[in-house]
Simulated assay, not measured.
Amino acid sequence: MMRDVTAELIAEWRDELTRLTGSLGHLFNRPEPRVVFAQFVEGLLAELPKKNGWTLSERAGHATADRMQWLLNGSVWEAGRLRDAVRDYLVEHLGDPEASLVIDDTQAQKKGIKSVGVAFQHCGLTGDVRNCQTTVMLTYATTAGHAFLDRRLYLPEEWAEDQERCRAASIPNEVGFATKPEPAVAMLEEAVAAGVPLSWLLADSGYGRDPQVRAWCHDRPVPYVLGVPVDLPLDGPPGEPRHPAVKRATTCFITSAP
């Protein structure tokens, strides 16, 4: 509950958001998308029943959704540079040597078949198989807050094998199929290279079962708490056979401390 929120505090938040979006104006080569970008961010943070091109445009006072749609579909700017700017801002305001990096994925439900990466796959939002997109996420958790750090859109194998479909969706030729832990490890590498302070890595069993993720932690070394599925074999003492992780559970956790 936000009982202590005052008009003065809201005004401070608004001013800070204006400064933040204004500082990102260099990402755009024209003034029009700079203005629409700020309106787009404000709309995403607003209490709207639905958030799409039309509702965001209506809130911004636009007669049509053309300007919002052009920001995402036609204007020239680099999402990677925006991600880097957000990461730098996050480290400046939330950076903590005791922080944790969190790997997880999220889904966006879709009705059509043309959105990049859309397929019938497990949807964490509903707990079943749905037509959706999946994005592998890297977030940053501290005692002061938990915020977005990086992302990679997952491209299912059925997409990667269909070159015509990929060309129609403007997917670069060099982009191929990769399991979800692969982009997760790539994002971890980039975060460390950028000097993001951290002490722990956290992930659920979808990533904890993958040897690439665990190997990345061991090679640094980075302490971790990872969920693992019940059927994951674990190495016992030398000379002893491998055995399942646990019994009578669906998920357990493996940890490593410094």
Rank of each mutant, 00 (worst) to 15 (best):
G61F: 09
R30W: 04
P238I: 09
C217L: 07
L226V: 00
D128E: 15
S57I: 04
V35G: 01
L94W: 08
G22V: 10
P97F: 09
E12Y: 12
A79H: 11
A178D: 13
K180M: 01
A79C: 09
L27N: 01
A85N: 08
G25W: 03
W54L: 14
A147H: 11
Y207G: 00
D4Q: 13
L201N: 06
P233W: 03
F253Q: 14
R165Y: 12
P31V: 08
V116M: 06
V213P: 00
R67Q: 13
Y89I: 07
C217I: 10
H93Y: 05
G80L: 10
R87Q: 15
A168F: 04
F148W: 14
R19S: 08
C252N: 02
S100L: 10
A99L: 14
P238S: 08
S205D: 00
W159L: 02
K111A: 14
V5S: 12
E58T: 09
V118M: 08
Y89L: 15
M187W: 00
I254H: 01
P223Y: 07
F37E: 08
H62D: 14
N29E: 12
V213L: 00
R81P: 01
T134A: 15
Q163P: 06
R167E: 13
A144D: 15
H218W: 10
L138H: 02
A7Y: 04
P258D: 07
N29T: 11
P223H: 07
P197V: 07
L9A: 11
T255S: 15
E8P: 02
Y207S: 00
C166W: 03
T6Q: 11
D219S: 15
L226Y: 00
A46C: 07
D88H: 05
D235Q: 15
Q133W: 01
L9Q: 12
T143C: 07
A141P: 02
D4S: 12
S170T: 13
P97W: 08
G95D: 06
A63T: 14
A79Q: 13
A38W: 11
P244H: 03
L27H: 10
L232Q: 00
A147Y: 15
Q109W: 01
S256M: 05
